[in-house]
Amino acid sequence: MSRFVERYPGRALAILIAVAAALWLIFATWPPGLEEAFGRKKVFLSAVFNGVTLGGLYFLVASGFTLIFGLMRNVNLTHGSLYLFGGYIGYAVSVATGSWLLSFLCAFIVVALIGAAMQILVFRRIEGQELRQTMVTIGLSIVFADLMLWAFGGNFYQIQTPAALVGPIELPFVTAVKSSGEAVYLQYPMVRLVILLAAVVIGIAMWVALNRTRIGMIVRAGVDDRDILAAMGVRIQLVFVLVFALGAGLAGMAGVVGATFQSLSPGEDLRFLLASLVVVIIGGMGSIPGAALGALIVGLAEQLGSVYIPTYAIVVTFLIMVLVLAVRPQGLLAGR
């Protein structure tokens, strides 16, 4: 941190000013001139919160994607299909049992098992052949998409939000002050906050697992040099299967999240595959903090874009991606 400031004092200052401005925009009561030029504060604040919560969902999907790539150098293009399948499993479970939490667990386990099976049956046989792996995953994603269309049809599915989480909650952010001097606080959907919290907890758990545990150490060593790690007697194939299962399971769980505050339908698999690709390209392939930063940037860009420049909102995300590729092609937080 201090080294960064010493090396790039200009950039550090710019970042500091941007952060201060953002904090002021979020916490201060907006003067009338700003409201006129920029719209109401409630809209801005909601868009920021929505961007962050959407970023949480993108992080859940992309973290598994980046983990698998980091360790196995396998660009797993079936990741979107795993997301969608997890959502469908979650839907079936929540309809059958009525339990939202159980649907997370089932989606995680079932999709993790599928991920493990894919690693054992398919990718182990073509290890190290990156182009072939990529082609195989494209093929599998098409097959999965058609199988799911066959089984679940073209209809859209939504998982019922548990009754306790329906409705808004008041947050301690002032959006406006009434003429009587009474402050108006931001109303925000509770379920999105819960989901954001879950994403943060999972993110921290993954970081701790990777940086503070023995298995995490093995995975990190594998990311750096697979062959040496294998030569030291670690059962690398088992690690591969576990990581693939974890990454797939996270995608499955994200499917349940997506089905709760958005909806599931054919085509969502591609949308989330694309989102994860953009997220990891921005954040840096193989890096968990990179996935978190990338997800946050993409989520904010989508939501702020949809409010302030609705017509071009779709382009913003890709502009950011192009910019990152041009300036820092390895991604913002890439290790190497």
Binding site: A47, N50, G51, F261, S306, T311
Partner: peptide
Amino acid sequence: RQWVPLGTKDFASVIAA
């Protein structure tokens, strides 16, 4: 008059606006 792209999934910001 607010216009959203066909196929919008996340309406939270539209609703807030």
